[in-house]
Design a protein around this nucleic acid. Sequence first.
DNA 1: GGCCCAGGGCTACGGTGTAGACGTTAGACG
DNA 2: CGTCTAACGTCTACACCGTAGCCCTGGGCC
Lengths: 242, 242
Amino acid sequence: MTDASAKPGSLGPQSSGRRPALTREQVLTAALKIVDESGVEALTMRRLGQALDRNPMAIYRHASDKEDLLDGIVEQVAAELVTPSPPEHDRDGGGDDGWENALRRTAHTFRRVALAHSNLVPLLVTRPLSGPLALRPLGTLLPFEELLEVFINAGFDNHGALHAARLFTGFLYGHVIHELQERVHAPDETDDLLRLGLHRLPVTQFPRLRSLAAELAAYDGAAELDEGLTILLAGLRSQLLT
Amino acid sequence: MTDASAKPGSLGPQSSGRRPALTREQVLTAALKIVDESGVEALTMRRLGQALDRNPMAIYRHASDKEDLLDGIVEQVAAELVTPSPPEHDRDGGGDDGWENALRRTAHTFRRVALAHSNLVPLLVTRPLSGPLALRPLGTLLPFEELLEVFINAGFDNHGALHAARLFTGFLYGHVIHELQERVHAPDETDDLLRLGLHRLPVTQFPRLRSLAAELAAYDGAAELDEGLTILLAGLRSQLLT
DNA sequence: GGCCCAGGGCTACGGTGTAGACGTTAGACG
DNA sequence: CGTCTAACGTCTACACCGTAGCCCTGGGCC
């Protein structure tokens, strides 16, 4: 051990400095970067250690597990979803259909964030399944709490609000899943059928899908989200009036 | 066909008789069994080989990849979703709101199948993200094609049908994800707050969620699905009338 | 001073997916 | 009949994975 050649030092002068010490946030940010750039399967303890210029095992000081690491990433992204400004006192004014606009904004924010971290979407949607709701990282529950608030302020009772909130987040999940599936197959092909790869589908089994080539080609995520919102909000509104 | 009693002695180092040769379906069935019983993370090439009493490498003759294996499993479960009886000629009769009932049935079937393979749900929801729609295993597209059929017969135009089908499957995804999250934490505790683990949540941050303990405790999946359907169908119906 | 202990480094272990070469056989075809 | 071929199964080997366990170090505490 006398040989303290300090390994891949390559840093500044050997003598003094200990490096400034990692924080959980740095770890999570680096991990998220890897996922964003190269996909979930590229997120490896060794690669993450490399990105942090630390020994892979150092990570375990800030995340007990790889599972915990993934939870942390999701939680960090979930933080991008919480609305920064609590519209507290506008309840008196036009609180009439304000809740619908609030939901529209929430939906578009969710869409934007999800698309900005599209590689993370599988985790975002799937992590909640790893355990009962109340044991999930608190940060991931905050957006849901905010939704509940919106619905209750809109006039739903407890049961209705819980239900509406579930319906709404389910809708959001569904939307991004579908939108991410719309990746074009061969962008240089002119014919819609070919460009989307729909020619692969047997005509007899998939008459409907094949005939939708034009619609599929003209996909517009934001518009689709809005249309879905219109339908969903109509349903919720009718529920509220009874 | 599942009966594999054909195995002669199941031993005899290399006695003589050749075993009846594997089929892709057998491989997928065995894989699905492992997933159902022990979770996705337990599905390992070696373990699957063991379950099939074959060398792990034999699997690669029937699935090019582990990815392909997973796709195959999902496809097999998707086959449980296709409605066996095509109601062809009842189009004349009471085609009025028949489509709503059809959707209700579809939804409950989906729920039943998803809960029967709850360990597979993450894959079911997530696999579609692994590539463009038209490149997915055909079997997984069939339920979608059937949905399109329903909506078009109900009177939606191409665009509307595509949209409605996406909305509907997104709703189904969302529902099962939420339902699976309702696993009770400590079933022997009498107080709802404690039993659900909600006491973990800081009161100041989660007033709404905590106050919903009773509702959360009384969760009924089928009922929730029906309520969601009511809302969603109301929205779709109003869309159809315009 | 003495102590503690959080943060980081290193090695090592058991497990993973799968490439590649090799055997064996059932059936096609002359 | 013999020969060829393609499918199926086996084995070995490799690179990589998550992480248990132990050590060292330095700054804050009494």
